[in-house]
């Protein structure tokens, strides 16, 4: 099981990377952590003419937080993200979801940008970024643009990135006070891709009224699935009935696939169960009693 022949470039700056992407167009493939791409190369399921390895573009490896939010460079290793004290403190949902990615050895190499750009339908980060209302910054020799996370993953293993574009960073807004969170995942083995995972955020006001709630599921279709909670949770103090209704909405929102690990029916069932559990926990953490 050995990869096919490819040529190799290892740019050391964003600028060089953009130039290489412009030069090779669709023949070029960015290599970041390689934890998804290299298995496909070894199995000869991917055969790019040129690998553009961005592991030496160190300017892309950073985590910066300010009052407004968190900016994560694309080359930030997943393990570095989850160990980052500010991330753990202010964006615990992100840390918790990242902990579910594979094993430590995978996270040592795997990058935040790589996970988003690969857009595996069962991956954690694309879903969590959607829940967090993140914004992705991409650039090419033609300039830079911002893509909201909700528009970023467009289909199975497909993003809004153009072949010549580089995912540079992702910005996550600060969470409002009294925001609770939860991440729930079921996988076959520890470290496997999710059969279904659910990210939840619930914001309450001082009176306990839910002012905002977000729920995103992964593993249930070609892209992460956000659930509209305006009819169920938002606008009132959360009740068990409201949570149950929201969980029903989650189940109704998904059209999951069947595969060797689980039938669609089970994934649909999990969507409801995990949504209910995640929302319940998030409400508790927001200071609500449900």
């Amino acid at each position: 099981m050995k990869p096919p022949v490819f040529d190799y470039r290892a740019p050391v700056s964003v600028e060089e990377t953009q130039q290489a992407l412009a030069e090779y167009q669709a023949d070029g493939k960015l290599l970041a952590g390689g934890q998804s791409l290299v298995p496909m190369l070894n199995m000869r399921l991917a055969r790019p003419a040129v690998l553009i390895d961005i592991n030496r573009v160190t300017e892309l490896a950073f985590v910066r937080a300010d009052d407004g939010g968190l900016t994560i460079g694309a080359l930030t290793r997943q393990q570095a993200l989850l160990e980052h004290p500010t991330v753990q403190e202010r964006w615990p949902l992100l840390a918790e979801a990242t902990r579910h990615i594979g094993h430590r050895t995978i996270r040592n190499r795997g990058t935040v940008g790589g996970s988003l750009a690969h857009a595996d339908p069962a991956a954690e980060l694309p879903a969590v970024m959607l829940a967090l209302d993140a914004v992705v910054t991409v650039s090419s020799t033609r300039g830079e643009r911002q893509i909201p996370a909700r528009d970023f993953v467009v289909d199975y293993l497909t993003t809004a990135l153009e072949p010549t574009e580089l995912l540079r960073s992702v910005w996550v807004p600060a969470l409002p006070p009294r925001t609770g969170w939860a991440f729930q995942e079921v996988s076959r083995r520890h470290g496997d891709f999710a059969l279904v995972a659910v990210a939840a955020l619930v914001t309450l006001d001082a009176a306990g009224v839910c002012t905002d709630a977000r729920l995103v599921l992964t593993g249930v279709g070609p892209t992460p699935v956000p659930v509209d909670l305006r009819q169920t949770l938002i606008g009132a103090a959360p009740s068990p009935a409201a949570v149950a209704a929201a969980a029903e909405a989650a189940q109704a929102a998904v059209d999951p696939p069947s595969d060797v690990h689980a039938p669609a029916e089970y994934r649909r069932h999990l969507a409801r169960v995990l949504a209910r559990r995640a929302l319940t926990t998030a409400i508790e953490r927001a200071g609500g009693t449900e």
Partner: peptide, 8 residues
């Protein structure tokens, strides 16, 4: 015995 089968 998978979780999916148990639920079923």
């Amino acid at each position: 015995i998978t979780p999916a089968k148990l639920v079923r």
